[in-house]
């Protein structure tokens, strides 16, 4: 079966490493350093470069993890992917509704910082859970 738009399995480890490093940097900037760049251009200042590394690195890492093939990528795995994607989209919609209703001010800003990764994070967690259930239920 053709599995287009999926990356080789080894990209998953690379993605995890990139995500962990970038996410730690991101949390450091957001919660400890608490300093933000005014410009958006990558060479504007060292702070802007750090911000961009944290934002793009986290997204790139998550995308590599989410869209890497499993060791055996068959049609059941693709079905589990589709199932996880639909659930992740639904859950992220619910989260946006809830956060818009109940979060205001600074906390909402922090939520927005993380919100850009919510769909991918939910997809990865739900897909891993689907795979865990699939392997556990079909071991004999």
């Amino acid at each position: 079966m053709k599995t287009s738009f999926l990356l080789p399995n080894k990209c998953k480890k690379l993605g995890k490493a990139i995500f962990v490093i970038s996410a730690i940097l991101g949390f450091y900037i957001l919660f400890i350093e608490e300093s933000y760049a005014d410009g958006f251009l990558i060479f504007d200042s060292w702070q802007a470069v750090k911000n961009n590394i944290a934002i793009i690195g986290s997204l790139l890492g998550l995308a590599l993890v989410a869209f890497s093939k499993e060791r055996v990528e068959d049609e059941l795995v693709m079905w589990l992917r589709a199932d996880a994607m639909i659930k992740a989209l639904w859950l992220s919609c619910v989260l946006v509704f809830l956060c818009a209703l109940f979060l205001y001010g600074g906390i909402y800003f922090y939520y927005l910082s993380v919100a850009q990764y919510i769909v991918l994070l939910l997809y990865i967690f739900i897909f891993r859970y689907n795979m865990y259930k699939h392997i556990k239920n079909n071991e004999e």
Binding site: D74, E75, H134, E140
Partner: peptide, 22 residues
Amino acid sequence: VGVSRQTINAIEKGRFVPSTVL
């Protein structure tokens, strides 16, 4: 047939309906 053993098990148990190709 190019799938995982768990997939064959899932098909045998009726938990998964394979595609026409498979």
